[in-house]
Design a protein around this nucleic acid. Structure first.
Lengths: 139, 139
DNA sequence: CGGCTAAATGAGAATCATTGTCAAACTCAG
DNA sequence: CTGAGTTTGACAATGATTCTCATTTAGCCG
């Protein structure tokens, strides 16, 4: 247990590296299963469970964004800018996503939460709609 | 199909009434399964599938709020005020929720979406934290 | 550098919430 | 009251995610 040392870093295995690599190669939101497919197509033999484990670990470490869709699927994406928390505008037809910024939202959230006695705040802001291309197709 | 008539109102069966009733008796966020349990304890014989169907219908009709937790479970709660769209501040330890209002958020969302060419906007704003009571307990 | 031990992996079974199926029960219009 | 079309309920099916466990591997020790 070595209680004196801090949190131990996870081992760097080739499959964990592969997941990290795949994430870095694209900045789309994709499900764990989808990332797994991508890895398989690149010739990797990673198991689905391993992809899930890696993704979860990365999400906890704050290195990837994780959003839960309304169907219960969890989507992951490399978190480009660690320096600033941002939000998303997602097309509910084609899935395309764009980053957006919500000015003053963080401060506002902190303030309201404090007023209600809440601590350790976290928040989710997702805006969904139908993008121009999909609207043109009649959606 | 009767294309001339508008959307037909769903039939009012005793099980649908029971679901509505249960929802009205409490304003907590609970899962479909949890509501089903509650109904069974009240002596109702509603089936789980029926509870799911009713809850979905109500959510689509805007009569109940539905939020998806980070574990993929969908929680439902009677929506007190139909007149205004509101958001929630939820304790991630004990589940308590309070309604909050986000001034100008709707307009802001519309504007940003329009700038990106998106239409038919919808949004989710959830703030989670640890409430005073739970913080006191060491969480 | 070779060995060792605990952590990580992979294949598939298991789990959980939710949805689909279909015959039987029920609502509502006439 | 009666018929036609909905809705229901029991249970199977699905789909995503997690667990199990024997096997492999990373990283440390000598």
């Amino acid at each position: 247990m070595t209680p004196t040392s801090g949190a131990s870093a996870p081992r760097m295995t080739k499959q964990r590296a592969a997941v990290l690599d795949a994430l870095s190669a694209s900045d789309e939101f994709r499900s764990a299963q989808s990332w797994h497919d991508a890895l398989r197509h690149e010739g990797s033999t990673v198991g689905l469970a391993t992809v899930y484990r890696s993704l979860q670990a990365l999400a906890e470490a704050g290195e990837v964004d994780a959003v839960v869709t309304d169907t219960g699927e969890t989507l992951y994406r490399r978190c480009g800018a660690v320096d600033e928390h941002h939000h998303h505008l997602r097309c509910r037809v084609c899935g395309a996503a764009e980053d957006i910024e919500v000015p003053q939202f963080e401060e506002w959230a902190e303030k309201v939460a404090a007023e209600h006695g809440f601590a350790r705040i976290d928040h989710t802001v997702e805006i969904t709609g139908v993008c121009a291309a999909c609207t043109a197709k009649g959606h």
